[in-house]
């Protein structure tokens, strides 16, 4: 049985300008210890998917229209608040993109770091502090005994992200959701944080959902990758297969527009047009308007993820029909 099984998740936002279908029918499974990358551009629904699972969608304006997210037998979307609380922050933890704004500036590092322990475990404050200190050392903060008593503004960006990771991992969760944890950091610090997540994953044996827009980060970290576009998954495969044999035109286009893979001076490959307006109904394939292979039926017929090989699935009618 998978650790997390999300099926037919739909999260819509009701605004004055219409209903935004931010996530529109997302299903995936995650095994214990597995690292899943979710890749997509801004507005593709990758963060909303994870916020929905964690119960962090502001309602209203958001609403989870349908779907289930079963974590170890408990449906996180339909369980009681008490059940959700016993899982969230203990067995499922999350780290966020911006380490500058996701720590409480009024609380000492020590207080926010051990809060999950005090809530979820029957532990004295002194023991919790001892574990907090050990955790800070494990994530590579020098001079942790002194720094644990400081405030977030006294830390650099990379150190704050380490504190966030320590806070998320202090309860030894079975699943870590990381929402672009390195996007706001410099490359040398990003390299440190990625190494740290890999190391902690080996020690604790947790599964990781890693959200990013950087295909380079995915290639080094993830076992499996899922590409999202306009609230839907368009391709899902193990990392090697996805990088060496992408099937969906969007995945191919995304890969081709990375400057690193192109010759110097050559014109960069670009995807024409703009991502679709999610408040308008999108019959057929959401990518059809920008796709160089689109034909009439792409714009009218619904397309679902279909298997294309072991562990590989994509949602393109023309690839499925063997035409391209």
């Amino acid at each position: 049985m998978p650790l997390l099984s999300v099926s037919d998740l739909r999260t819509y936002f009701y605004t004055r300008n219409g209903v935004y279908r931010a996530v529109d029918g997302v299903s995936f499974d995650l095994e214990r210890g597995e690292t899943l990358g979710i890749v997509g551009e801004s507005g593709s629904g990758k963060s909303v998917t994870c916020y929905s699972i964690m119960g962090l969608i502001p309602q209203p304006p958001g609403r989870i229209e349908s779907g289930t997210a079963v974590f170890d037998g408990v449906d996180l979307l339909h369980c009681t608040p008490a059940q959700a609380r016993s899982i969230r922050g203990k067995r499922v933890a999350m780290i966020f993109q911006d380490p500058m704004t996701s720590l409480n500036p009024y609380l000492r590092i020590s207080d926010q770091l051990i809060e999950p322990l005090l809530i979820h475990e029957n532990i004295s404050k002194a023991d919790a502090l001892r574990r907090g200190l050990a955790m800070l050392e494990a994530v590579g903060i020098n001079d942790a005994a002194r720094r644990i008593n400081l405030y977030p503004h006294e830390f650099s960006g990379g150190m704050r992200q380490r504190v966030m990771i320590a806070m998320a991992l202090i309860t030894k969760p079975e699943l870590l959701i990381a929402d672009e944890p390195t996007t706001a950091l410099d490359v040398t610090v990003q390299a440190q944080i990625l190494e740290l997540i890999k190391k902690m994953q080996q020690e604790i044996g947790m599964a990781v959902v890693f959200i990013t827009h950087d295909l380079g980060v995915v290639s080094g970290l993830c076992d499996r990758v899922q590409v999202m576009y306009a609230g839907r998954i368009v391709e899902s495969a193990d990392t090697r297969t996805l990088f060496h044999g992408p099937k969906h035109p969007y995945t191919r286009a995304l890969q081709r527009s990375i400057p690193a893979l192109q010759a110097k001076g050559a014109e960069l490959y670009t995807i024409r047009g703009l991502p679709p307006d999610l408040s308008k109904p999108l019959p057929g394939c959401a990518f059809a308007a920008r796709c160089e292979f689109a034909v009439d039926r792409c714009r009218t017929s619904e397309v679902a993820l279909a298997p294309a090989g072991p562990g590989h699935a994509h949602a393109c009618l023309r690839v499925q029909a063997g035409e391209i």
Binding site: M159, A191, E195, S219, I258
Partner: peptide
């Protein structure tokens, strides 16, 4: 700096030697 850039190729990305700088 060059070695810290993640490359979009799972084969080379996992085997290459990375210089991880200590500190900020």
């Amino acid at each position: 700096l060059v070695s810290a850039i993640p490359t979009p190729n799972p084969d080379t990305e996992r085997t290459r030697q990375r210089i991880v700088l200590p500190g900020d």
